[in-house]
Design a binder for these strands. Structure first.
Lengths: 341, 341
DNA sequence: TTGTAGGCGTTATCAA
DNA sequence: TTGATAACGCCTACAA
């Protein structure tokens, strides 16, 4: 175990063990082909020299890496870390490394990450994109690089995708509010660049229309991002409205948590002054100031399923793209509990 | 842009542009050395062929990767994702990629991740270890691989480290409770394998001793992990105690949030029946059922500082190991507000 | 300004 | 069962 010097190569091991380089390679890749005592000698040398395979050289030679990449939309959102955990479990089971990247809602960073992953020659890319129609994604596909959309779908079957029916989720959330007697509500979320936001809003509007409520009583408050901070700000804007909605549907739980906090700070009661429902059902939702109702998505399963589709595409000759769509469900808690009156 | 076939190499580009391979390499690495129209021709060919540098080959040749690795202790804890974000910012500024790994509190997975990072020949490793004295870390150092401890320190100066004074943090938290008149409190956290937990407890015990309170009135409830789930369970155990503590100091906010939720579920009031203070001051702490008092650590700064130390070690010839210790501070909120009596 | 040649560490083929 | 050798794609001298 020499410190300071450059790390030992197969050649060094071969010299130390008094065998040829090919034999060392065999010990590494086809151990059964080499006589036990030679093997022992080689393995001994590897330990002595602190030999570690150089993955770059291996990749270069074999033309294939042992790595997957996941470009997440927002690493500070527990929803995505749970999705990532699902992916990681599947990757680990397949003995693959996972490159985790965070685009942080920036298309520029997303493109940079994808470019890097391609340079690294990862086996495949999982991505929750800012924009599922980004040219960067097409480029990956044109290179023959498997790519799976996570928490997003495309209707042209260009990639595999795993998603939740966001329109249905929005519909369920708003129906939940309507059932509790609310006739003037706010939709809070953004930016509208995000498909998740647009679709959840669309579902909300559908539910609204089906219930014959006047369109102007579904107020849309667009935020810059889906963060606690933006939720706090939205709370102030909401309080400033001429006619107060009695309920809010937030495009995700981070926004809902911020809104909840601000509402309480302003001296209002949840749910009597304002009912709130979020989306994702992250673990913190149930532990909030007022336990938060939310639309649950199967987070870990999303990740696991996405990784499985990717692995199928890399290994299965006659792979066909699939659009897996999970069904969300409302989890009712105190923040939308019925109030008398 | 040929689909299906293997990806284009510099050789292919050279052929397509009618120049030699060396010229293509020059366009890539020393563009000023090549005549503008030749360069244009080469760049055109690169676009046409969809050429992307093969990072493995580049690494193999140059002997150095453009990648850092961070092995995080628990990716579902927002504290660590914030630390990671700080690291990522610093890495991006230095034009380096970041391999994010999650040991999930498992020494086995931690070792596997470190081994993989070494195989990938990353420039350096940042790690929040399960155990800072793990042999796997020594191995990295013996290979001459820069390694920085994050949120953990070692006293033998074997690596750089960036941490928060956990003993002081524990001391501050408990002093905060003592000042509010509590004379029987619980420390909740675990496992005791984690240095963070041991040191926060040590600080708590010191504060207790300095205040001449009887040792048996500082009850220690060890948990399996620092998670919301374990906090919930601890809440039940706490309620089952013969003599109830009037306050709890939790080793982190996840545990505190779980405890808070359970306490409320059991029909008790916070802070009047039980005051609670956590550790980390994650964003969700302020948005909790009862806004949670906590010991704040400068999360992003921890990450940024760690990355800077690592970069210094990789680039600066006469680098000296440093132990950077940040000072925590108590953020008092409703969960420990004074109650009359 | 451009071209040629050698080698980074590994794997795989083929011969001994 | 083991050894010699070529090749993966790139970069960098050095030569033209």
């Amino acid at each position: 175990m020499v410190s300071g010097s450059r790390s030992a190569s197969v050649k060094d091991v071969a010299a130390a063990a008094g065998v040829s380089l090919g034999t060392v390679s065999n010990v590494l890749n086809r151990p059964h082909r080499v006589k036990p005592d030679t093997r022992a000698r080689v393995e001994r040398a590897m330990v002595d020299l602190g030999f570690v395979r150089n993955e770059s050289a291996r990749q270069l030679r074999t033309g294939t890496s042992q790595t997957l990449g996941y470009v997440m939309l927002d690493a500070t959102n527990p929803f995505f870390t749970d999705v990532a955990q699902g992916i990681e479990l599947a990757a680990e089971a397949a003995d693959l490394s996972l490159f985790l990247c965070n685009s942080n809602n920036s298309a520029r960073r997303e493109d940079a990450h994808v470019a890097r992953l391609i340079q690294q020659r990862v086996q495949g890319i999982l991505i929750t994109p800012v924009n599922p129609h980004s040219p960067a994604l097409e480029v990956a596909v044109q290179r023959g690089l498997p790519l799976v959309l996570v928490d997003r779908a495309r209707h042209d079957n260009a990639f595999c995708s795993v998603s939740v029916d966001d329109v249905l989720g929005g519909w369920l959330a708003v129906m939940h509010l309507i059932e509790r007697g609310h006739t003037r509500i706010a939709f809070i979320g953004g930016s509208m660049e995000l498909g998740q936001v647009r679709e959840r809003l669309e579902g909300a509007q559908r539910a609204w229309a089906e219930s014959d409520l006047p369109p102007e009583d579904l107020v849309v408050l667009e935020t810059e991002a889906l963060s606690v901070r933006e939720g706090l700000a939205a709370g102030e804007r909401l309080a400033g409205l001429a006619r107060h909605p009695t309920a809010a549907f937030c495009a995700n739980d981070m926004v809902a948590l911020g809104l909840l906090q601000q509402t309480i700070t302003l001296g209002l009661k949840v749910p009597s002054d304002l009912a709130i429902i979020g989306f994702d059902d992250i673990d913190f939702a149930g532990a909030a100031a007022v336990p938060l109702s939310s639309v649950r998505q199967p987070r870990m399963d999303l990740g696991r399923a996405a990784a499985r589709l990717l692995l199928d595409e890399t290994t299965n000759g006659d792979h066909h793209h699939q659009q897996l769509v999970f069904t969300p469900e409302v989890v009712g808690r105190a923040s939308t509990a019925p109030v008398r009156g």
